[in-house]
Nucleic acid binder design. Sequence first.
DNA 1: CCCTGATTCGC
DNA 2: GCGAATCAGG
Length: 168
Amino acid sequence: MSWTDERVEQLSKLWLEGRSASQIAAELGLGVTRNAVIGKVHRLGLAGRAKVVAPQAQGRTKAKAQVTAAPEVEEVEATVVPLRNVPTPIQDAVGELAIPPSERVTIMELRETSCRWPMGDPSHAEFRFCGAKTAIGSGPYCATHARLAFQPTQDRRRDRVERYARIA
DNA sequence: CCCTGATTCGC
DNA sequence: GCGAATCAGG
């Protein structure tokens, strides 16, 4: 992979939009790390512009924080909608299992250890994933939802029948 | 612990 | 030029 004109353009656009290096890296994909993004940003001269007054910024060995302000960029008011967790209901749609402590997260807030059990309507902005810590390391679900997801076929069949019965 | 950007330097 | 490693900080 290399920095083609197209990728550089995409990088500049996203960076100037205020996206973080890791987000940009994820978007460019294909093994691009946030370090790669940051490094390129600096080489392009798009970096900093805001803070930095600290004279004590060290890299691998020694470094003198570059205080020289980069070309000022038009301040853009970012219209960011804070996505905060909402109070957690005591029970989920199944009506049996208690939901883990309020840690529901958006897709952007999902981490490797976040329970990926979907909660709510995926077509709505309020959609969240459970977000609780996964039960076993890299497992996709927390203990509670793992039980639901990997329920014995007998129980699952029973539930399915009950659900259909409810609808009918 | 999660994340952010900044910097250096071996490649 | 590139970016991993590392740093300082939120």
